[in-house]
Simulated assay, not measured.
Amino acid sequence: MPPEKDDDPIISSYDITLNDSDISRYVLQYLDRPAGHNYDDRHGQKPTSLRLKPRTGLVEVDVPVNTRVNYDVDKGLRYGDALKRSRAAREGAGYGMAGGFSVGGAGGGKVKMEGGGANGGDVDMGGTGEASLLRVQTLGGRIKTPEEGDPVYMLAAFREGNLHLSPVTAVVQLHPQLHHLDALDEIPAKGRGGKGARKEGEEERSAESEARAIDVKIKAAEEGGAAAVAGNLDLLKQMQDEKWGRYEWIDAETEESWDVYENFMIHQDLENLPQLESAIDSEEYLDRMSAPRIDPARPEMTGWAMKQNRSTQRG
């Protein structure tokens, strides 16, 4: 009879190499971004800035917005101008979680009306100088501190007959941040062109006075919640006090990125690697990974007792 065909054949085998974990490797997930539409130079949306607060784990990425397609220039001017004014009033302070998300770098610059205005020139806001167009969308998230029992993620790279694994420091989920709406809310009614919003005779307040701190009050819902609330407030303060570390974004297809890939994703010295040795044998591995094995002849013999009985019989 011909030999039975294996339903699960081994197609290929690889030697596994574990790279060091001396550097930080973060995986950024864009939850509202379709697969295949990366934020890179090839798709015209290479991020312009990466900001990081390593101690409190805040991450922020600025990505350019296409102002020529499906873009409301009027609203873009309103939001961009609001960010510009509010940033000046707050002296660079941020929005978001406890002011932890800075609006620095999210402004615009000179506005060029490309097919959207009657005159194709720069836009002037009532003689106050050049207007600011919102050209950048800010995505933000937080690095979750790993806890015991969390899954360990690895980045894999194949090279010839070797599989190189590199440990992931953290997976960060990034969401759009609505700093432009917060900035618009801070502009005084007169600054937005609203009429009748201020009582007659009331002194005009500056934008600086409008940009005021907000007191956050949290009530503990359960006993012992006061300590947790105090810890949360302390964390929020740390987020606000920590300064942003700013980093240049290198596109994935550049030579510099490939050099980093070669240095930190592929082990360079395969000849002098220490060999991983298992602390358990194959039988003990099966005992730990499977349900307890039962000897049909002696049902009381399960797991460790069954193994000991077999060892006695072999001796």
Results as ranks from 00 to 15, higher is better:
D8R: 07
G36A: 04
M125K: 09
W249L: 01
D7W: 10
G94I: 02
V61S: 00
G224R: 03
H164N: 15
R198C: 05
I10L: 10
Q275M: 08
L58V: 01
T302N: 02
E253N: 15
S86I: 12
V65Y: 00
P2A: 03
A106Q: 13
T128R: 13
L270Q: 14
A106S: 12
Q268R: 12
E200H: 07
G105F: 00
L178N: 12
E262P: 01
D20V: 05
Q173S: 14
A220K: 11
D215R: 13
G196V: 06
H43R: 07
A227Y: 08
R42F: 12
V61P: 06
D281E: 11
Y153F: 13
N38P: 09
M265D: 05
E262S: 09
F101H: 09
P9F: 01
R25I: 11
F158M: 12
Q308I: 08
G94Y: 02
V260S: 03
D20M: 05
L163Q: 04
Y261D: 11
V172L: 01
A88C: 05
G225D: 14
F264D: 01
R205E: 13
P292Q: 02
A220G: 15
V111M: 02
Q238L: 14
E203T: 10
Q29H: 14
D281G: 12
G92F: 04
R55P: 02
L270F: 01
K144S: 13
D72Q: 08
S166P: 03
I143T: 05
F101D: 02
S49Y: 04
A35C: 09
Y71E: 01
Q238R: 15
P188N: 08
Y153E: 03
G96S: 03
M265R: 11
Y153Q: 07
G126L: 07
S102C: 09
L235V: 03
E202P: 04
G224K: 06
R55T: 13
S278R: 09
R288M: 10
L286A: 11
K195P: 01
R205C: 00
E210Y: 15
V59H: 00
Q177V: 12
L184P: 00
D287C: 05
K53W: 03
P151F: 06
T67D: 04
P167D: 02
G194Q: 14
I143K: 11
S49C: 11
A170T: 06
L286N: 05
Y247N: 00
S132N: 14
A213N: 14
A220T: 03
K53P: 08
R298F: 11
D185R: 15
D15E: 15
G116D: 15
R298L: 07
D295A: 01
P64W: 00
